[in-house]
Design a protein around this nucleic acid. Structure first.
Length: 727
DNA sequence: CCGATGGGGCTTTTT
DNA sequence: GCCCCATCGG
């Protein structure tokens, strides 16, 4: 057998070869989680314990799904090249739900060619619904309504089941109902609906449920800590719970790490791990604690930090690699200072042969990237920032897709409104209002109502296009549609239109690359190519930006760094208020989630980890004085080497002359000082505790200081009265 | 029909 | 301070 089981450690082996029971694998960062998952699948198939068709593996991102498929395929074809894992279902929760809904669309109450709304589309649909109903958007902001609707759907709650406690909730529930009706009328489905609809399909249809739990004997779940309540319930149904495996139910193999749960804000429920253990009476819990990524000091820091969390299943990472070098801590005078220092270090690293692509710059929030980008740009260092608009989310791509959607499904009002007058064909607001009124009266789509009005020109365009495109290969159909839409001409006439035209051409390429195979695995065989491609565009927003293969510094939020690793990591902006973020401190268990976030950040580093913070930082147009993050304090000091003197730990304020010579980064003297107190100084107050002076004003006996306290926020105090102590 | 202007807001993100 | 959005005026 070529699975190289002999290369697995005992715990990994135990997980891979787990007996026919439910299993929970607690997989620490860098412990070989993906390897275990993929080897387990290959082991099941090779050992003839399961046919590929008996396996369902579910992930959160398309990237993870692709990686899993690639690795499983590689393992299986190594020995017998033709044994592709056909019949196996690997995908995201949404992808799999989509697939089931297409196959059983009638039972689910949907047209087979239903359209998927991404978040942008959903918000547009909600706004349209609200406008149509003359909703007071001050009272019911569309964005809030969207959160409400998605939140309810993720709890499995339909409009009539919403617990109405007050007038506002009642209003929201009513709008939720109206929105759902609109979606149903138009044959569209948003992301949350995809899951809920599929859940309801299984819940109502025992035969189907029975079929799937028999077929998918083995269900494997990746990143289990990120599942939301609905996804957990979906897994329960699909596995035939509470029917035990001996009686034909599925075996659930869940892999997760409670310490890396960082998505509570979008509905993830770590509690699912404990619930799973209890509900499925899991006896087989395996801990993967050996880390193959980082040096000992880095792991020790991560372990120490995360041990401050109370709600944990418990885990301690270790490595057989050496301790490595200490963590390096830098205190900048300002965010600019921090950025300049970082760039200097990066230049030094690059000189010593470190590849830029092996260096990650991590930050808590996107706004922090600007200062660093600026510093990098001025030194000509190539970098790549993750995040932002992705390919299928770009305006011109959405426009082209809207034309395609109308070709595939003329009743899609969302798509209709997006492009009926884009490029401009003098169809104004008045005309559209009339059209919408007419459509409402006839209870028809806008496209149908366009017949016989001046908008019929547009209808004819789409109808002609449909006829022309009929039977053409997908890529050609896309190309013809783009050409006929007038988008190219429109952007040709624009100054910055060249990039957009390029993207439109890229869309044709993407259509050409969208293979028969993808079509089938994503939507099932029955769906026509165009619908399948549109589904693909909605479910997979595409890469963020082509990296162009250039060796570049990697910049991203800590959230997007999850799952990645770098030789060198810079974790920047470790300041109270930023990281942990000030919002999180008031949220329930918010601080623990921030700590897990810091844990994720630390465990991204293989060899070298820099931690940095700045005394002052521009935020919301104001200079803020931040004290170092508590997370810095939680890292044992013997693991750390300070690159700058530890201001926060200096006993009393004393001019530190040694600093001027020792520090390679001389700083300006502080402007003003009264009785040894200066702006930026760390202080303690008998009542308010630790804080930092952010302002100093007044003269003589009436000097006032403004202090930002760690736990009590901003306070203005009279220096003569307040019993302030330098910290 | 576009560009300018002003107001609000501002954590994290995938599907 | 900056970005996004809506609205207004040419």
């Amino acid at each position: 057998m070529s699975l190289h089981l002999e290369h697995l450690n005992p715990e990994q082996l135990a997980a891979v070869t787990a007996p026919d029971e439910h299993a929970l694998i607690l997989a620490g960062a860098g412990s070989g989680k993906t390897r275990v998952l993929t080897t387990r699948i290959a082991w099941l198939i090779k050992g003839a314990r399961a046919a590929p068709a008996n396996i369902l593996a579910v992930t959160f991102t398309n990237k993870a799904a692709r990686e899993m498929l690639t690795r499983v395929t590689a393992m299986l074809t190594a020995a017998s090249p033709s044994s592709l894992p056909r019949g196996m279902w690997i995908g995201t929760f949404h992808g799999l739900a989509n697939r089931m809904l297409r196959m059983h669309h009638a039972e689910a109450g949907l047209p087979q060619a239903f359209t998927i709304l991404d978040s942008q589309d959903q918000l547009a649909a909600i706004k349209r619904m609200s406008k149509g109903m003359n909703v007071d958007e001050e009272r019911f902001p569309p964005r809030e309504l969207m959160y409400f609707i998605n939140g309810q759907k993720e709890e499995g709650t339909r409009p009539r089941e919403v617990r109405v406690t007050d007038e506002t909730t009642k209003g929201y529930a009513g709008l939720y109902a109206a929105y759902d009706e609109q979606c149903q009328r138009e044959g569209v489905v948003d992301f949350a609906e995809l899951l809920l609809r599929c859940y309801e399909l299984l819940a109502r249809n025992e035969i189907l449920r029975e079929h799937y739990s028999q077929r998918f004997r083995y269900i494997l779940v990746d990143e289990f800590q990120d599942t939301n309540r609905l996804q957990y319930r979906w897994l329960k149904l699909l596995s035939g719970h509470p029917r035990p495996p001996q009686a034909g139910g599925s075996l659930v193999f869940a892999v997760g790490d409670d310490d890396q749960s960082i998505y509570t804000f979008r509905g993830a429920n770590v509690g699912n791990m404990a619930d799973f253990e209890r509900d499925f009476k899991v006896r087989n819990v395996v801990r993967l604690e050996q880390n193959y990524r980082s040096h000992g000091n880095i792991l020790d820091a991560a372990n120490a930090l995360i041990s401050n969390n109370r709600n944990r299943l418990g885990k301690n990472l270790w490595t057989s690699a050496g301790k490595g070098e200490p963590l390096r801590v830098f205190e900048g005078e300002s965010d600019n200072d921090e950025a300049r220092w970082l760039v200097g270090e990066v230049e030094a690293l690059a000189r010593d042969g470190t590849r830029l692509s092996q260096v990650g710059v991590l930050y808590r929030s996107n706004a922090q990237s600007r200062v660093v980008e600026h510093a990098l740009f001025s030194r000509g260092i190539p970098y790549r920032v993750y995040g932002g608009l992705r390919f299928f989310e770009r305006a011109e791509i959405k426009d082209a897709l809207a034309y395609l959607r109308l070709v595939a499904a003329p009743d899609d009002d969302n798509a209709f409104l997006r492009v009926v007058n884009f490029p401009a064909r003098s169809i104004g607001e008045r005309t559209l209002e009339q059209l919408q009124d007419a459509a409402k009266q006839q209870n028809s789509s806008l496209m149908k109502a366009a017949e016989g009005t001046k908008v019929a020109v547009f209808k004819k365009l789409i109808d002609d296009l449909r006829a022309e495109v009929q039977g053409l290969p997908l890529a050609e159909a896309v190309e013809v549609t783009i050409n006929r839409s007038g988008l190219i001409e429109h952007y040709k006439a624009k100054r910055e239109g060249a990039d957009r035209i390029e993207n439109l051409e890229e869309l044709v390429t993407a259509a050409a690359a969208f293979s028969q195979e993808e079509r089938e695995t994503e939507s099932g065989e029955a769906v026509d190519p165009l619908t399948a491609f549109l589904t693909h565009a909605a479910l997979e927003a595409g890469e963020h930006q082509a990296g162009e293969g250039q060796d570049a510094l990697q910049m991203m939020t800590v959230h997007s760094a999850k799952g990645l690793e770098f030789d060198v990591v810079f974790l920047t902006g470790l300041e109270e208020g930023l990281f942990p973020h000030e919002q999180s401190v008031v949220e329930r268990d918010g601080l623990e989630e921030e700590r897990r976030l810091a844990y994720v950040a630390i465990t991204r580093a293989r060899n070298r980890l820099y931690l940095s913070h700045a005394q002052t930082r521009m935020l919301h147009g104001q200079t803020r004085y931040n004290i170092p993050s508590r997370f810095l304090e939680e890292i044992p000091q013997q693991l750390v080497k300070w690159l700058t003197p530890r201001l926060s730990k200096q006993k009393a304020f004393q001019p530190d002359f040694s600093r001027q010579t020792q520090s390679p980064f001389p700083r300006k003297p502080q402007a003003r000082e009264v009785d040894g107190f200066r702006i930026g100084q760390n202080v303690t107050h008998p009542k308010f505790g630790a804080g930092v002076i952010v302002d100093l004003e007044g003269q003589g006996s009436d000097v006032r200081v403004q202090v930002n306290f760690r736990n009590h926020g901003l306070k203005m105090l009279a220096l003569a009265m307040a019993k302030l102590q330098a910290a």
